[in-house]
Structures are given as C-alpha cells and as structure tokens.
Simulated assay, not measured.
Amino acid sequence: MTLRDDAALVLKGYAPEGPEDARGEQAELRQAYLDHLARHDDGMWKACGAGHLTASALVIDPERGKVLLTLHRKLGMWLQMGGHCEPQDATLEAAALREATEESGIAGLTLLPGGPVRLDRHPIPSPCNRHLDVQYAALAPAGAAERISQESLELRWFDYADVPGVADASVVRLLEATRARL
C-alpha cells in the first residue's frame, strides 16, 4: 500500500463529530482532500503545484494542561509540529509522528488514538501554495524534555488558556478538538 492509498483510507474513515462541524466544514474538507488525491497522482508531495497533503501533530501534556508550540522559522508563527510527507513515511500517522518527534525533540511521543483530530486547508508561501493538513494530537510522556530543531526559532509550552493569545485560529481549533477527544 502506498502513502497515497493510506491517506485515502484515513480520509474515508475520518468522521468529523461534535459542535465544531455543525456546518459540515470538516466533512467538506474531507471530500476536498479525497477529490484532490483522485485528481493528482502527486497530491501527497511538495512538488504538486495544486497543493499537497501534509501531516501535523499538536504535542500536548494533558496532566499539566499544556501544549508545546513551535515558532516556525519561515512563517514566524506559533504552530503545532508538522510538515511535508516523505517517501519513507508508510502512513499519514507515521508522517505526523515523525514530524512531531523531529520538531519537538521529544522521544516517546504517542498519537492520540482515533485517527486525525481535524483537517485544515491553508495557503502558504510559494513554491508550495497550499497545504491540506491532516492534524493529529501527540501525547508527551511524563517528564518530556523538548529540544529545538533547525526548523524552529523557539519551542515553548503554553497553558491551554494562553494559546488563543499567541496562535492563529487553526491552532486554537486543533487544541479545542483535541481537548474534546481526551
């Protein structure tokens, strides 16, 4: 099975729920992602000019009520960990976990069970143009110590209540959806 096949299966199985999808936005995104994969054989890869799927994970420590965000080097924004899928990624989950581990420096992260937490489509600077992000949540092990990567300007743990003051609405929605699933 290819990564593209896995992505299609994950998306077909993604069932948005709760008040966040009352207007059907997540269901519409789900279908848009599936349509994208059907139209673009290279829809998983950065080279796809029409956009591409990415995988991300919000690193969370529910015991302390904190979330780890990265100050993205290129975008200058506080974001969850994530990025482009790589040829060695067998699944979207593997890509999200790899990105979270690489960017946080935390060994032993585990993804919150139940598949993706939400989907988010957003424009980005050229040459990529658009990310179709499949968002997961990663649980930090007890005593986790972060280590900054070359992709970040800074890493910082934020209390849940502080996230709306530093991050954009997509990160806030991801945190809300993650907390609803915990």
Rank of each mutant, 00 (worst) to 15 (best):
A7W: 00
R98L: 00
V171K: 01
T70H: 06
T101H: 00
D6I: 04
L97P: 05
A161Q: 11
A177G: 14
E25G: 15
A27E: 14
I60R: 00
R118K: 14
H84K: 00
V171I: 12
A15R: 15
E102M: 10
W78K: 11
E154A: 14
A177W: 02
T70G: 13
A144R: 08
A32R: 15
G105F: 15
G83K: 05
V171M: 11
L37H: 12
L119I: 08
W45P: 05
D5A: 15
H131W: 00
E86M: 07
G83N: 07
D6H: 13
K46S: 09
D162M: 11
A15F: 13
A55K: 01
P16G: 05
N129Y: 14
H84N: 02
R30S: 10
T54C: 01
W157A: 08
Y160Q: 01
H72I: 10
E103S: 04
L112G: 06
A137K: 03
W78P: 00
E146S: 15
R64P: 09
A140K: 03
V59R: 10
L71C: 09
I124P: 00
L92T: 03
L58P: 01
E20H: 13
V10C: 01
T70W: 03
L34R: 04
R173C: 08
F158S: 14
L139H: 10
L132V: 09
G76V: 05
L75K: 13
R173M: 14
K74G: 02
L174V: 04
R156Y: 02
G105R: 08
L119A: 10
G65L: 10
D61P: 05
D21A: 15
A145K: 15
C128M: 13
E99C: 13
E176H: 14
A107Y: 06
L155W: 01
D42G: 08
E146P: 05
E63W: 03
R118G: 00
R23M: 12
D41A: 15
Q88L: 14
G49H: 04
V117W: 05
A142L: 11
R39M: 11
A177P: 12
P113H: 02
V67D: 14
A140R: 12
V171Q: 09
H36C: 06
A50H: 05
E28F: 10
D89Q: 03
Y160K: 01
R121C: 07
L92W: 02
